[in-house]
Write a protein that binds this DNA or RNA. Structure first.
Length: 819
RNA sequence: GCCGCGAUGGCGGAACUGGUAGACGCGCUGGACUUAAAAUCCAUUUCCAUUCAACCGGAGUGAGGGUUCGAUUCCCUCUCGCGGCACCA
């Protein structure tokens, strides 16, 4: 018997599986489908560390398990290679992003292959491949035609280091998520996608996602940030001006004692003539402008503001005159950029009113005395005319009716979600397939909503619009991408009228290519050179939705919202037939370094999987990472733990040295079948740590025996094969078969064999353990009572005591309750 | 501040719909093998008290309370930790 040589054996089987196309997706119609997907990585320059494969190992186990259970499984992998990280890396290392990306992909692929992951590499995708991004452009073009894309000049988030505009989702606490620079607000021409049109569905359909982790759903709800309320208009005395405000508490309008405008609010400048302290106001606004967003929202939330003297507003429900302020605690970008302040029932208004000695008028009563504290809870309306006596929810409804009936305001829903700023002034991204022609604009004949919305702009139907080569791909910082310098690319003959036209030079953001990539893998089932996704309907119907999607929680509010949005759009235009892309979603917990910190070059604590595979083997790495702890939890790496996993594999190997045709003991058979039952259930629920421990228990039991039954052993090998595929395949061959272990069927639990015929029954007195009895399965209470009558240990406790009650649970326990 | 998740030996963790808490792995300690070490194997390992030793006893799943014959598990209050959102009206 040879020794377990992991290096030789893993290399051998990886080559063999490749040669026999073992991992290729089975396109059969007689097996149920299962689509098991990882979040594809961006291939960074550093290569993989030992934490990255954890999720990939899990999906590999599930995929192999499902195949053994008779599913045809789609389990693909690809590369999210456009975007800032790839480009910044390329800039820093003075190579073309394409060259750097290709090199990084090669490294990643080599590392992943060494782990023995059963990806169908024939479906590999790369978001930077023109054959891929022509579809990214196609979807964008369809959105444009439907009027979901528009050109805008609003101030957007601008990263002064990356020299590009960013979406809200790209910010981390007011800083660029990539480089950590504080972002600025910069007015700029840009393309924006109306994701807010889908906000209601994105929120409502979260409830359908019953197989998603609650935390991620909650993050999405937070991010979407729906709030229901009303808008209403306040007229400014002695002028034609009005101020519109948004409130979620229309029931408290009678309690409004002043208005507050955001410093950027247009009314401030518009009413300059009426304001008597203009200098003071201007000074305040300038001071605020110099504060960053971060400072404005931080600083202990200390309120500041200035009254607009000379301006008075009229409360539309009671005609009361109230003063108007500017203050930076009101944000220009949310609601209408103006609020009515109800200091009695809003914490921020309360703070402001206290600081500037403004009147506080209570209009809701809830049992608690208003006194020194703000009261934000629901209650009953008071001092509110026709609302008096109504509970808060009814008062809200009644007030909205009143506002609408008298044209004072209307019901309104606000979202924190903003439309998606989709332009990047960078080189390394998908070109937008848009063309502008002045002549066509002047002619004003439009084919679709997008053209009507953006006169002169239309889609270049000749896809892909290829990313051209440039001399310098340094970002310019001017608001144009480096593509703007290539006049022969930018200036084209108008495809419509043949006149002078120009291409859009902004590129798409990082998230574009990843918003639909799971569809691309399924499209690979057929060849089709027609440029519409509708032609793929048949294979998309077959493979979608994704049954199991595994990845990091950091994508909860970015990728996962964008992908759900694109999917719903594709559903609306008839490309896919399901309204949600991912049926089940699971988070991977991080693997921390041995010192408990994140693995990072900075701490010099990174462990490279190549070394581990060299020293302990890919199978040991796989088993260890699954055994470390609950799958979704962060756990620190432990080299000793890894050694433990390897020892377990050695034990399995050693079992194969004592194979025999003799039957195993009844106990071993029982344990084997219990293990079969447990492992199936645990893989389904991603409880991989207990899968490993159950296998260890079985192997330990067998290790103590002199012989191991060959047939039973081969069942163990199948159970082991998703976790440790190389070792399992080798043992499968050694124990006597020629076809692959992965062509077998998953063992069935024989319930008859798994059943216990003896049970340990707990004897308790007043709920305390006093003894355990070994009994036949399903022994009746009378039998147990009889045994106990002659049991000294128990009788000692019962002697001279009055038994009040006896609780008997078959096969579990008997409990004597004493007085 | 709001929302979500969590807290079990020296460490990672296990425990089905409430029913023997600490499975499995690591580490520690002792022993076998060895000239020696590594590797391997065997044994011990929640804490306290007691004993030459064994049995026996008590406490124990972040803290306090409750429901129950019985609570790591269910309910209430609190503390701490992690994650998300955050002057969003």
């Amino acid at each position: 018997m040879p020794k377990y040589n992991h290096q030789e054996l893993e290399k051998k089987w990886q080559a063999a599986w490749l040669a026999t196309e073992l991992d290729k997706t089975e396109e059969t119609s007689d097996k149920p489908k299962y689509y098991c997907l990882d979040m594809f990585p961006y291939p960074s320059g550093a290569g993989l560390h030992v934490g990255h494969p954890k999720g990939y190992i899990a999906t590999d186990i599930i995929s192999r398990y499902k195949r053994l259970n008779g599913y045809s499984v789609l389990h693909p992998m690809g590369w999210d290679a456009f975007g800032l990280p790839a480009e910044n890396y390329a800039l820093a290392n003075k190579v073309h992003p394409r060259v750097a990306t290709e090199a990084n992909i090669a490294t990643y692929k080599r590392q992943l292959s060494m782990i023995g992951l059963s990806y169908d590499w024939s479906r590999e995708i790369n978001t930077t491949d023109p054959e891929y991004y022509k579809w990214t452009q196609w979807i964008f073009a369809e959105m444009f035609k439907k009027g979901l894309v528009f050109e805008s000049y609003e101030p957007i988030n601008w990263c002064p280091t990356c020299l590009t505009g960013l979406a809200n989702e790209d910010l981390d606490n007011g800083k660029c998520e990539r480089c950590g620079s504080e972002v600025e607000k910069k007015p700029m021409r840009q393309w924006v996608i109306r994701i807010t049109d889908y906000a209601e569905r994105l929120l409502a359909d979260i409830d359908q996602l019953t197989d998603w982790e609650e935390s991620i759903k909650e993050m999405q709800r937070n991010w979407l940030g729906k709030s229901e309320g009303a808008t209403l208009k306040f007229a400014i005395i002695n002028s034609q001006l009005t101020v519109e405000v948004f409130t979620t508490r229309p029931d408290t309008i009678f309690g409004a004692t002043y208005l507050v405008l955001a410093p950027e609010h247009e009314l401030v400048a518009a009413s300059k003539e009426l304001i008597s302290n203009w200098l003071e106001v201007q000074e305040y606004i300038n001071k605020v402008k110099n504060k960053s967003d971060l400072e404005r929202t931080d600083l202990n939330k200390d309120k500041s503001g200035v009254q607009l003297k000379g301006l008075m507003a009229i409360n539309p429900v009671n005609q009361q005159e109230i003063p108007v302020f500017v203050a930076d605690y009101v944000l220009a970008g949310y609601g209408t950029g103006a609020i009515m302040a109800v200091p009695a029932h809003d914490e921020r208004d309360w703070d402001f009113a206290k600081k500037y000695n403004l009147p506080i008028k209570q209009v809701v009563e809830s049992g608690v005395e208003l006194g020194d504290r703000v009261m934000t809870d629901a209650g009953v309306a008071i001092n509110s005319d026709f609302l008096d006596g109504l509970a808060t929810p009814e008062a809200k409804t009644k007030m909205i009716e009143h506002l609408e009936k008298n044209s004072l305001g209307a019901k309104k829903i606000n979202w924190k979600l903003k439309d998606w700023v989709f332009s990047r002034q960078r080189y390394w991204g998908e070109p937008m397939p848009l063309v502008f022609c002045q002549a066509c604009k002047d002619r004003a004949s439009f084919d679709n909503d997008g053209e009507r919305l953006n006169p002169g702009w239309f889609v270049d139907a000749n896809l892909p619009v290829r990313l051209p080569e440039v001399e310098s791909y340094q970002p310019s910082g001017t608001g144009e991408s480096p593509l703007a310098n290539i006049s022969e690319w930018v200036n084209i003959k108008c495809p419509r009228c043949g006149g002078e036209a120009r291409r859009e030079t902004n590129t798409m953001p990082q998230w574009a290519g990843s918003s639909w990539y799971y569809i691309a893998y399924a499209m690979r089932s057929i060849n089709n050179d027609q440029l519409t996704m509708i032609n793929y309907r048949e294979v998309l119907d077959k493979w979608l939705p994704v049954d199991m999607y595994v990845g990091g929680a950091e994508h909860a509010t970015r990728h996962l919202i964008y992908a759900r949005f694109w999917h719903k759009f594709l559903f609306d235009i008839g490309v896919v037939n399901c309204s949600e892309p991912f049926t089940a979603l699971r988070q991977v917990g991080l693997i921390l370094a041995e010192d408990g910190r994140k693995m990072s070059k900075r701490w010099a604590n990174v462990i490279n999987p190549d070394q581990i595979i060299q020293s302990h083997g890919a199978d040991a790495l796989r088993v260890y990472e699954m055994f470390m702890g609950p799958f979704n939890q962060s756990v620190a790496w432990s080299t000793n733990g890894l050694t433990g996993a390897r020892k377990f594999l050695d034990k399995v190997w050693n079992l194969s040295e004592k194979l025999s045709d003799e039957a195993d003991s009844r106990e071993i058979e029982r344990l084997l079948h219990k293990t079969i039952r447990k492992i199936g259930a645990d893989i389904e629920s991603l409880a991989f740590n207990t899968v490993v421990s159950a296998l260890m228990i079985l192997v330990n039991a067998w290790t103590a025996e002199a012989k191991v039954n060959r047939v039973n052993f081969r069942q163990l090998v199948i159970l082991l094969s998703p976790l440790a595929p190389h070792l399992a395949e080798e043992l499968w061959q050694l124990s006597g078969a020629d076809s692959s272990v992965f062509k077998q069927t998953w063992p069935m639990c024989n319930e008859e064999l798994a059943r216990d015929d003896k049970v340990n029954l707990t004897v308790q007195i007043n709920g305390k353990l006093r003894d355990t009895l070994e009994l036949d399965f399903d022994s009746e209470e009378s039998v147990v009572r009889e045994l106990i009558a002659s049991n000294d240990k128990v009788q000692k406790w019962l002697a001279g005591q009055e038994i009040v009650k006896v609780v008997f649970v078959k096969n579990k326990l008997i409990n004597f309750v004493l007085k």
